[in-house]
C-alpha cells in the first residue's frame, strides 16, 4: 500500500439501530501521518464510527477503508495494521500489565526478544514498570494508560483512540498528549474526543461530527480562519450601539455584535482591524476605554458548527 493511500477513507457511512440514526452519511478522509482529532458532542456518533473502523460493528450502508482495506471484507487484514483503544477498555482482572501486553504481542505473532523489548518499553511508556498488582486493582487512569500501551504493541500504522484522555488526571493527560504528539509523522493517530483543548494541543487536522454527519473537516488553523473569522476583538466604548451601527458592512470584519457592555468583532486579519477600528471610533467621537484581541478558539468554532448542524430525526440518541 503506497504512502499516498489515506489512513482512513469513509464514504457515505450510515448506521441505524432500529429507528435510531447513529450515523447519517459520514464522509471523511484521514491522511497518513496525521494526528487527526475526531470531535463531536456526546452521542454524535464518534464511538460508532470507531467501532465500525475496528470491525466491531457493521455499517448499515456506505463503506469504510483503513489503509486501503475495506473494514468489512478485509477485517482480518485491518486488525493487523491498527491499534485500538475503546472508551472503556476491558482487561482480564487476573493478569498483570506485563501479562496483558505479552498476550497482546503474541496475538500479533511477536515472540522472544522482540516481544520482551517491546513489552518493557511500553510498560515504561505507560508508567507501569515494576507494578505487579493485577489489573483488577488498577485505577481507571492506570487502565487507560495500559490501554494505550496495548494498542501500540504492534507498532500500528493507524492508532485509533476513543476518548483516550477522559479518565486521566491532568498529569496523565499531559503525558498521553505528549506521547500522541510524539507519534506525529511516524504513524497516523485518529482519536475521538469532546475535549477541545486536547485537540488544539496535538492535532493537525480535525473533523467535527454532529447529528451523525461530519459538518467540517480541515486543519485547525484553516478551520479557525474559515469559520471563526480568525480573531476575536472586544471593544469597550461609551456608546456601543453607535459603534455597532457604524461598523455594519465593514469589509475587514467577519461579524460584529453587541454583547453586554462590549462590542465583539470577528476579523480575519488583526493588523487591518487594529488600523481601521480606532479610525472608526475616532470618526464617531466615541471614547475608547478598552481594546482586547484574542484568537478565536476551537471551542467557539465547535459550538457554532455543532449548533448550526442540522440534526436528523432520531440522531444522537441511544448508543453511539
Amino acid at each position: 500500500m503506497s504512502d499516498e493511500t489515506p489512513a482512513v477513507v469513509i464514504d457515505g457511512l450510515a448506521k441505524r439501530y432500529g429507528d435510531v440514526v447513529a450515523l447519517d452519511g459520514v464522509d471523511l478522509t484521514v491522511p497518513q501521518g496525521s494526528v487527526f482529532g475526531f470531535l463531536g458532542p456526546n452521542g454524535a456518533g464518534k464511538t460508532t464510527t470507531l467501532r465500525i473502523l475496528a470491525g466491531l460493528a457493521r455499517p448499515t450502508s456506505g463503506r469504510a477503508a483503513v489503509l486501503g482495506h475495506d473494514v468489512v471484507a478485509r477485517a482480518d487484514t485491518v486488525h493487523g495494521l491498527i491499534g485500538y483503544l475503546p472508551d472503556v477498555p476491558g482487561f482480564y482482572k487476573w493478569m498483570t500489565a506485563e501479562n496483558f501486553l505479552t498476550l497482546s504481542g503474541r496475538l500479533f505473532g511477536l515472540e522472544g526478544a522482540v516481544l520482551r523489548e517491546r513489552v518493557t518499553a511500553l510498560l515504561d511508556l505507560a508508567g507501569l514498570t515494576g507494578v505487579t498488582t493485577r489489573v483488577g486493582g488498577y485505577s481507571r487512569g492506570m487502565k487507560q494508560r495500559l490501554g494505550v500501551a496495548q494498542a501500540l504493541i504492534n507498532a500500528p500504522r493507524l492508532l485509533m483512540l476513543d476518548e483516550p484522555t477522559s479518565a486521566l488526571d491532568p498529569i496523565g493527560r499531559r503525558e498521553l498528549l505528549e506521547m500522541i504528539a510524539g507519534l506525529a509523522g511516524r504513524t497516523t493517530v485518529f482519536f475521538s474526543t469532546h475535549i477541545l483543548a486536547d485537540v488544539e494541543r496535538v492535532c493537525d487536522t480535525v473533523a467535527i461530527l454532529a447529528g451523525g454527519r461530519v459538518v467540517v473537516q480541515a486543519g485547525i488553523d484553516e478551520l479557525k480562519a474559515r469559520h471563526g473569522g480568525g480573531h476575536r476583538i472586544t471593544v469597550d466604548v461609551d456608546r456601543p450601539d453607535q459603534l455597532v451601527e457604524a461598523l455594519q458592512g465593514a469589509a475587514w470584519l467577519a461579524s460584529v455584535a453587541h454583547e453586554g457592555r462590549d462590542v465583539v468583532l470577528e476579523a480575519p486579519d488583526l493588523e487591518t482591524a487594529f488600523r481601521e477600528l480606532p479610525a472608526v471610533v475616532a470618526a464617531q467621537g466615541l471614547a475608547l476605554r478598552r481594546l482586547e484581541a484574542a484568537e478565536v478558539s476551537l471551542e467557539e468554532v465547535f459550538v457554532d458548527l455543532v449548533q448550526g448542524a442540522a440534526v436528523p430525526a432520531g440522531a444522537g440518541r441511544g448508543t453511539t
Binding site: 470491525g55 482480518d76 475503546p86 476491558g90 500479533f108 504492534n154
Partner: peptide, 13 residues
Amino acid sequence: AGTDVLMLTKPLT
C-alpha cells in the same frame, strides 16, 4: 467485561 473487544481488534479472528 469488554475483554473481547481488545482481543478481537487484533489478529484473532
